[in-house]
Simulated scan of single mutants.
Amino acid sequence: MRPTYFSDSKAVASMRRRRLLLALAAAPFASGLSLMPRDAHAAQGVIEGRDRWLFPAWESYAADDTQACLKVVDLIGAAVSKLAAHDVRCSLVVAPLKARAAADKLPEGAALSPAVAQRYAAILAKGKQAGLDFVDAAAALANVDTREDSTYIRADYHWSAHTAEAVADATADRLSAPGVLRGEPTDQPALGDWTEEMEYGDLAALLSPERKRAVGKDRFIVREETGGGGLLADATPVVQVVGNSMVQPYLGFPQRLAHALGRPVGLTWKFGDTGPWKTLLDYLESPAFSSQRPQAIVWQFNEGQMAYGPGASGQWDATSIMSEAAWLDRLDKALMR
């Protein structure tokens, strides 16, 4: 029987085709709207840019929070060290800010501030200094053929499926280095043909009916599912992807990673308001992890949330918020089981 190449969960089955949904749109409004540039045309938490492009107003492209991001890298480093002590490697993927990927589509007269322009590189540099394996997802954008698709979806929060696959390939390159994964690759799972769907983006859905109609629908270029989606529940992942809706199956990150590695890849993803800290705990505290630990975890973040640790009130839903000490304690307990 062919192994499962991505697995987990009821959420995958229930989202077989569309719904990118509002991955981050619910929770951040309370605190995020204060970060809107004053000169931007913003409504309902959305910034309208050039050529009907939309940007999330809860992610600032002006405010300098670099130092807070670097403190979060320290916390990530503590977690990665604990995983490594239990023979689980961890690679980090930070989805770039949409305003970074499509800076030329920001509102007239708007631009990334110098601090934000340099922030992604600062995060990676801090990670390298600490010996962490950060995948350069911003550099992977250069591998997206923009004649076929944009790097991010015009009126949606998310990166495109072509970008998801480019970042998955970059991640696979890191995990394919000699000695990183044990065992031999198996046959690569097939990827479906590209297909196109016309839908309103999740940011467009936040606009008034009149503005939504004016912005119009987007082309969602995604792959057809193959083999019933490849969901065979009895497989054992060699690599587990843990993240938010950027890595959901609809956009193809776990499938492409499995294809590139020739290894079973598992998936645990939650919407953005759960946050990366609680999502990782949910996986580590699960029976799946305690019964069969993967060789590696790919832990995915969003750049716009990198300044926020597990105790960031107003960023995560109430059940996800905890102190750093409590979070590290739960991490230790999950690894000791």
Rank of each mutant, 00 (worst) to 15 (best):
residue 133 D to Y: 03
residue 10 K to C: 03
residue 232 L to S: 05
residue 152 Y to E: 00
residue 273 D to V: 09
residue 119 R to P: 07
residue 67 Q to R: 14
residue 32 G to P: 01
residue 130 A to P: 09
residue 302 N to H: 15
residue 296 A to P: 03
residue 178 P to F: 09
residue 64 D to V: 11
residue 317 D to Q: 05
residue 220 F to I: 08
residue 40 A to D: 01
residue 80 V to D: 11
residue 281 L to E: 08
residue 284 L to S: 10
residue 307 A to H: 15
residue 46 V to S: 02
residue 83 L to Y: 04
residue 296 A to W: 05
residue 156 D to M: 09
residue 252 G to K: 00
residue 14 S to K: 15
residue 280 L to R: 01
residue 113 S to Q: 04
residue 261 L to D: 10
residue 310 P to C: 00
residue 230 G to D: 06
residue 216 G to V: 07
residue 184 E to G: 04
residue 93 V to P: 02
residue 268 T to G: 09
residue 30 A to N: 09
residue 160 S to C: 13
residue 246 M to N: 08
residue 232 L to G: 12
residue 1 M to K: 07
residue 320 S to C: 00
residue 74 D to E: 10
residue 237 P to E: 07
residue 81 S to Q: 11
residue 158 H to I: 04
residue 176 S to E: 11
residue 258 A to V: 05
residue 15 M to F: 08
residue 149 D to R: 00
residue 48 E to A: 14
residue 163 T to D: 10
residue 100 R to P: 08
residue 292 Q to D: 09
residue 171 T to W: 12
residue 245 S to L: 11
residue 213 R to L: 07
residue 330 R to H: 12
residue 66 T to F: 11
residue 35 L to Y: 03
residue 310 P to R: 01
residue 35 L to V: 02
residue 260 A to E: 10
residue 277 W to Q: 02
residue 242 V to N: 05
residue 190 A to S: 05
residue 61 Y to V: 02
residue 28 P to A: 14
residue 4 T to A: 14
residue 31 S to R: 13
residue 62 A to H: 10
residue 80 V to L: 13
residue 297 I to Y: 07
residue 329 D to A: 12
residue 152 Y to T: 02
residue 105 K to H: 09
residue 154 R to C: 07
residue 137 A to C: 12
residue 8 D to E: 15
residue 9 S to V: 06
residue 37 P to M: 03
residue 146 T to H: 04
residue 271 F to G: 15
residue 225 E to A: 09
residue 65 D to L: 14
residue 34 S to I: 01
residue 58 W to P: 01
residue 147 R to C: 09
residue 184 E to T: 07
residue 59 E to Y: 08
residue 5 Y to A: 07
residue 103 A to W: 14
residue 150 S to M: 02
residue 179 G to R: 08
residue 25 A to P: 05
residue 63 A to E: 13
residue 69 C to V: 08
residue 182 R to P: 06
residue 146 T to M: 01
residue 160 S to F: 04
residue 223 R to N: 08
residue 100 R to F: 12
residue 328 L to D: 12
residue 293 R to H: 11
residue 325 A to I: 13
residue 276 P to V: 01
residue 70 L to K: 09
residue 4 T to P: 13
residue 140 A to E: 14
residue 153 I to G: 03
residue 301 F to A: 02
residue 37 P to T: 03
residue 128 K to L: 10
residue 320 S to I: 04
residue 289 F to V: 13
residue 108 E to A: 08
residue 304 G to C: 07
residue 121 A to Q: 11
residue 18 R to Y: 06
residue 276 P to A: 04
residue 152 Y to R: 05
residue 62 A to M: 13
residue 68 A to Q: 13
residue 43 A to V: 07
residue 203 L to H: 05
residue 226 T to P: 14
residue 332 D to Y: 10
residue 48 E to M: 13
residue 332 D to S: 15
residue 254 P to M: 06
residue 315 Q to F: 08
residue 114 P to A: 03
residue 208 S to G: 11
residue 9 S to K: 14
residue 157 Y to W: 06
residue 223 R to S: 11
residue 335 L to D: 05
residue 223 R to V: 09
residue 296 A to K: 00
residue 61 Y to C: 02
residue 246 M to S: 11
residue 252 G to F: 03
residue 319 T to Q: 06
residue 163 T to A: 08
residue 135 V to T: 12
residue 26 A to D: 13
residue 122 A to F: 06
residue 42 A to E: 01
residue 189 P to M: 03
residue 301 F to I: 08
residue 230 G to M: 01
residue 108 E to W: 09
residue 191 L to D: 04
residue 336 M to R: 15
residue 272 G to F: 00
residue 67 Q to L: 08
